[in-house]
């Protein structure tokens, strides 16, 4: 699973990043780099991390995800974690990891709706 295989798609002012199923540590680190670069490049306000294929989310992977969310936030963007598998959610919780205040959604569709709703709210302010 190489870093190049991470797909980053721009979609209606949002970025959609699909996380590979079983990435090695280098790919996980590369993911963070790519996401931050893309956020800067597209001046995007929202990020959807699609983790629906991820089978194992250990503490290293989880920490990188949480860090990425925090960094994106510092750059003025909102992140939604989408599609975590039920067994992964059970395991992550039991492992004792908290994903902080990271927004979550059942799937990519709902994640996009969520970010769009946030954006319109933001406009009103």
């Amino acid at each position: 699973m190489s870093a190049e295989s991470i797909s980053v798609i721009k979609l209606r002012g949002l970025l959609l990043v699909t996380v590979p199923a079983d990435p090695d540590d280098r790919t996980v680190s590369a993911l963070q780099e790519r996401v931050l670069e893309a956020m800067a490049e597209h001046e995007s306000g929202g990020l959807v991390l699609d983790i629906s294929t991820v089978q194992t989310l250990d503490s290293f992977f989880a920490r990188t995800v949480v860090e990425t969310v925090q960094m994106v936030s510092l750059m003025g963007g909102r992140t939604v974690l989408a599609g975590m598998r039920a067994n992964v959610a059970v395991t992550v919780t039991q492992l004792g990891l908290s994903m902080g205040n990271t927004l979550t959604a059942l799937d990519v569709d709902r994640a996009i709706d969520m970010l769009n709703a946030e954006a319109s709210k933001g406009l009103r302010v």
């Binding site: 939604v80 974690l81 989408a82 959610a89 992550v92 994903m99 979550t104």
Partner: peptide, 9 residues
């Protein structure tokens, strides 16, 4: 509750 939240619910 925490696990359900991770799912997005």
């Amino acid at each position: 509750v925490a696990a359900v939240r991770l799912l997005g619910a």
